[in-house]
Design a binder for these strands. Structure first.
Length: 445
RNA sequence: GUGGCUAUGGUGUAGUGGUAACACAGCAGAUUGUGGUUCUGUUAUCGAGGGUUCAAUUCCCUCUAGUCACCCCA
């Protein structure tokens, strides 16, 4: 056994929880990205790219030191200059840091931004869950009006619906710093004499984070949770008004939603409106594709002025899995107008320049100049779904002509080499006008 | 982090205590100027390490990875 091979198999490989996005699946990612970008544009959100690396402190403060994400799952390290840094486990803290640092409070509020990028969590990998995973997220910073909540939820809903998914919004309000303590008290009170019926985890949760008792999966706990007091009944007047207004607006926007008192987000900074977008898979189980909420305390917590904000984040791998599962019809993949085939040493030499001319003439071109045979080249042209093949051989070179082959009909014509760009454009245009060919060609995943 | 299951070429799958079969894809050729046909050849020391055995890809153990459930989350 050669030691080389052994090395290749044991150490040069994908790190656990990481994933290559291969050329063959890029079209799905492009599809999602382009839809996200176009919806963002329609709703007036501008793209922001923040660094993957931030001070660890940022996430400790923003996401919460006690959360699993920060306490157990963060990729943290000390760099050469002694700074304590972390790979971002989520997008919001970086965006808010940028908002404060670049004085965006001087722009018209709310400042609406979105991001698309990788996030990192050292979690146990599972279906649709990686250690490096992609999220896209939207943040509207600087306005507390419930219409902002409704609009961003509607947008969230529309993005996923535009992607062809059958989804539903699960919504709740978790109050604010005024009313939540009262609710916690009531909740603790309710569970006080029921401790013996709770599972081991829940008895711990009772002390640490009573909200989490509500979404325990153990049957006995679930039954108790059904009867437990609900946050919505404990909302203070302001929070209650805010929430009911959001719901009214959502009705107005015809967004399908379900009230779900168990939507308690995992991050510490949320206040008031919280939601998740869920999709039911074959066995009727709901999987969250992402979630969001209002976070009116975060900007101040990170050292800015008191500034209300709201946002959401969606997991791209999960969305892409759903798209694959549902065989959503994607728009046509990139397709070359012409494929340049060459025969003979001289023709091959001339092809380089001709290729550039075709490109500059506004055509999408493809080639495999390393191939010699015309058969091979036609086969590849066919695989690449080229509309036309230009054939340049010794004969054409001498005559100053070139062959245009229509790959659908197989018809070939000889044209003047100098007029080739014009000739191709002419044929493409007439093809577009032909109604019988106007039917959109689409490709399933 | 805990537990169950799995691991065969690039991909999807057969199979056996005596070193592997098929399909697709890839490459080369039949055909050095014609594709979406055909034919031929070629592409794996059966995840890694150890043990039992005359002999292990097959049985056992460990590790690694994947997967599912829990936890958590996107």
């Amino acid at each position: 056994m050669s030691p080389k091979k052994k090395t290749a198999k044991t150490s040069i490989r994908l790190v656990k929880g990481m994933k290559d996005i291969l050329p063959t699946e890029q079209h799905i990612w492009d599809f999602v990205r382009s839809r996200v970008e176009s919806v963002a544009r329609d709703y007036g959100f501008m793209r922001i790219d923040t660094p993957i690396v931030e001070f660890t402190q940022l996430f400790k403060k923003a996401t919460g030191e006690e959360t699993d994400i920060v306490s157990k799952e963060m990729y943290s390290f000390v760099d050469q200059s002694g700074d304590r840094l972390s790979l971002r486990p989520e997008g919001t803290p970086g965006v808010i840091r940028a908002y404060i640092e670049h004085g965006m409070l001087n722009q018209p509020q709310p400042v609406k931004m979105f991001y698309i990028g990788p996030q990192f969590r050292h979690d146990k990998p599972q279906a649709g869950r990686y250690r490096q995973f992609w999220q896209f997220g939207f943040e509207a910073v600087g306005d507390a009006d419930p219409i902002v909540d409704a609009q961003i939820i509607a947008m969230n809903y529309n993005i996923l619906r535009d992607l062809g998914l059958d989804i539903e919004v699960q919504i709740n309000s978790i109050g604010d710093k005024h009313c939540r303590p009262k609710y916690f008290k009531a909740l603790t009170q309710y569970y006080k004499n029921k401790k013996k019926d709770l599972c081991v985890d829940c008895t711990k949760r009772l002390l640490k984070n009573p909200l989490r008792l509500l979404d325990c999966k153990v049957k006995g706990c679930q039954e108790l949770a059904e009867e437990a007091p609900q946050m919505v009944d404990y909302l203070c007047e302001d929070c209650n008004k805010h929430f009911t207004t959001v719901l009214e607006y959502l009705d107005e926007a015809e967004v399908k939603y379900n009230l779900n008192p168990k939507i308690v987000r995992g991050l510490d900074y949320y206040t008031r409106t919280t939601w998740e977008i869920v999709e039911s898979n074959q066995d009727g189980k709901l999987q969250a594709l992402g979630g969001g909420g209002r976070y009116d305390e975060l900007v101040k917590l990170l050292g800015g002025r008191e500034t209300p904000a709201i946002g959401f984040a969606m997991g791209m791998e999960r969305i892409i899995n759903k798209i694959k599962e549902k065989e959503v019809v994607l728009p046509e993949v990139w397709r070359p107008d012409v494929y340049l085939a060459q025969l003979g040493i001289e023709a091959r030499r001339k092809s380089l320049k001709l290729f550039m001319d075709l490109r500059q003439g506004g055509l999408t071109v493809s080639e495999d100049f390393s191939k010699n045979g015309l058969k091979d080249q036609l086969e590849l042209a066919n695989k690449k779904n080229a509309r036309y093949v230009l054939i340049l051989g010794q004969k054409e070179l001498v005559d100053g002509t070139i062959l245009i082959r229509d790959m659908e009909s197989g018809v070939q014509e000889t044209v003047d080499h100098k007029k080739v760009v014009k000739e191709v454009h002419k044929r493409l245009a007439s093809k577009m006008n032909d109604k019988s060919l106007k039917i959109k060609t689409t490709k399933k995943v």
